[in-house]
């Protein structure tokens, strides 16, 4: 009698576990056709007391921290440039949007969102399970389809102005879209089933007003324009 009770208990527990796992798997299958992660090790050049931290593995989430360091005229380099590889996966046509949050500086001489150049480029497949589509292309959206470290001018006041910068980012600004990115219909994240693009961030050291500045850019991947593969 005790044995039967124990077996019933184990059976009940197993069924419970099975139901929970199945539910979770169903949620993963239906809600995660899209995925965004690290595309590789971020890099930084031209910094003075600068750093960048982020995972080099495309199996890890995209969570990068950039410290541009000293960006007054004390930094004699022409530009501080950070390249962040971003991996994207999808089993359907997709789009990537960005949004920005950050502390604003009241002093117009202090660092503003317009002083941080931002551009995207260099779309390439990551691994043999990345989907190659011939009917449609992956499109970077203007004005972000540039490298801000080479595409800037001086405005009438002599201040650096980029072709695209963080001030061009709204609440959900599309920067990239295209056909499906990943072969198959599974929902797991692999290291050979993505496409990777470079997100480039730039600050030119200038005679800014003394102080600090910060901002956070959030990338999101979701369903995009219906284009053929």
């Amino acid at each position: 009698m005790l044995t039967n009770s124990r077996n019933r208990f184990v059976l009940l527990l197993s069924c419970l576990l099975l139901i929970c796992a199945a539910a979770r798997e169903a949620r993963a299958q239906g809600g995660q056709s899209f995925d965004i992660s690290s595309g590789g090790q971020p890099t930084i050049t031209g910094g003075l007391g600068a750093s960048v931290a982020g995972s080099a593995s495309p199996l890890n989430n995209l969570a990068v921290t950039i410290n541009f360091g000293e960006v007054s005229a004390a930094n004699a380099n022409s530009v501080v440039k950070v390249v962040v590889p971003v991996a994207v996966r999808s089993r359907n046509p997709y789009k990537v949007t960005v949004s920005v949050t950050g502390s604003s500086n009241v002093d117009p001489r202090a660092i503003q969102l317009t002083d941080i150049g931002f551009g995207v480029s260099n779309m390439r497949p990551l691994g043999g399970k990345a989907q190659i589509c011939n009917s449609s292309s992956h499109l970077f959206y203007s004005p972000f389809n540039n490298d801000p470290s080479t595409s800037f001018t001086l405005n009438a006041s002599g201040r650096v102005a980029y072709t695209s910068d963080l001030a061009d980012v709204g609440s959900a600004t599309t920067i990239l879209s295209g056909p499906k990115l990943t072969q198959g219909t599974g929902s797991s994240r692999r290291d050979d089933d993505a496409w990777v693009f470079d997100a480039v961030f730039v600050i030119t050291p200038q005679f800014f007003a003394p102080g600090t500045a910060s901002a956070t850019l959030t990338f999101q991947i979701s369903s995009g324009p219906n284009v053929q593969c």
């Binding site: 184990v10 995209l62 007054s72 961030f201 600050i203 850019l217 959030t218």
Partner: peptide, 30 residues
């Protein structure tokens, strides 16, 4: 049943995905 439950639970937890990622940045002017 117990074995199947364990397998399904393990499969469901493999390589979680995310539809968002962040880049946080800061700078200093002396």
């Amino acid at each position: 049943c117990f074995a199947a439950a364990i397998l399904v639970a393990a499969a469901a937890s493999a390589e979680a995905q995310s539809t968002t990622g962040t880049v946080t940045m800061s700078a200093t002017v002396s």
